[in-house]
Design a protein around this nucleic acid. Sequence first.
DNA 1: AAACGATCCAACCGCCTGAGG
DNA 2: CCCTCAGGCGGTTGGATCGTT
Length: 416
Amino acid sequence: MGRAPCCEKVGLKRGRWTAEEDERLMKYIQHNGEGSWRSLPKNAGLLRCGKSCRLRWLNYLRKDLKRGNISADEENLIIKLHNTLGNRWSLIAGHLPGRTDNEIKNYWNSHLSRRIESFIRRPSSSNSQSLPIIMDIAKLNGDQKQKGGRTSRATSTKKKNKPNILKSTRDRKASAEKENALAYMANQEKNMVMSNNNLVMSSSIIPPMQQNIEGEEEMTSAIMNMDPLSSERESVVLCRSEEDRERKEEVILVLGPIDEAAAADMMIMSFPSSNDANGNIIFENGVTSSNGLLSCTDYTDENGFMGFNDERESGVNTNIKTTTTSGDDQVSLSTCNGGSSSSQNENGEWYFTNSTTITSSSSSNNMTHSSLEDELGVCDWDNWVGGILESNNLLWEEFVGDDMMLNCWLGGENQW
DNA sequence: AAACGATCCAACCGCCTGAGG
DNA sequence: CCCTCAGGCGGTTGGATCGTT
């Protein structure tokens, strides 16, 4: 039997709060303070559930709430924090004075998740094919004429061809059929060269265009350039879970078009892929660059083991080349050299540190970073950050600098 | 102007945790 | 140790909004 409800709900009002209710609640809390939510409605003369009163106060009536749109700085911070903390909205909100967890959650779901997920997408199918694929990502992502419907407030004055991913269950269902059709079209047109984004994909394991009608985050586009220096290696594998790891032969890091905001970013990913005979973790790495095009490779070699015991001082060395292009023209060639090593603190927690150098042929903006970590494993946003491995659960390593990001994570338990 | 339908946000819901008896 | 309760959290959704046709 479930818990009793927090209050007797019969006869209680629901839905939007009126100005009069707001005033009653505010006056009551001003005189009596917060807390005792269960008894508050009765004492304040409100026909509301205590929980509802609490929510209304915390999310709307509090004096210290910040009004207005999320600023660019706040947005950047949300993205960075989400990378580190995941969907722990209250924790994220704690870093943004005046913003509520609900507000941030909504903002993430309606604005940011799409931007982020348009950057990294993965296919649903295990089938592979070796045909080069050239396709029009812009078309896939809704560059066609919109058939009615409201344009996002946030994006109405910005780019409109964002993919519909990570929506609510309801919204996903509503658009699954449409996206499925688009994916089918893409499959039919895979050998066409389209304008705008002339994305040339060549890989031995480009997956077919398939769409899951259930509307999970699915691939509607794919791009993969194998690093010619790593032709014998597997393609980049995005391991978000044990399941992905098991499927790594088929899971490819898929990168879609990137909007203006994301175009400033370069993302480097490093993640554990498998164990060697000694149980050491083999890391794989990938680089995604921006401007709509990128190339990726993974790298593991005899040094690419992350040890947890005596191997702690070994590390991961990466040499990743990424080509960034804009439109038809190649504009830069970057080389990323990275290293990673681990250590243990007195509590037995594992710390990981990283260093990476990005060298770009297109500018003198060569950057070198080395890792830093605070006691919480939370980012110093201007530097590399080491994450903490706890109980074989989750590791996040993250760097967000001027234009780079590195994420490193382990999946669920019992992987190692 | 009306209809459509995508989008968004306030509010709700269920679950979890910790405190206290 | 068990139960109840309050508070808190993250996921979900109802319905208002508003751009497009």
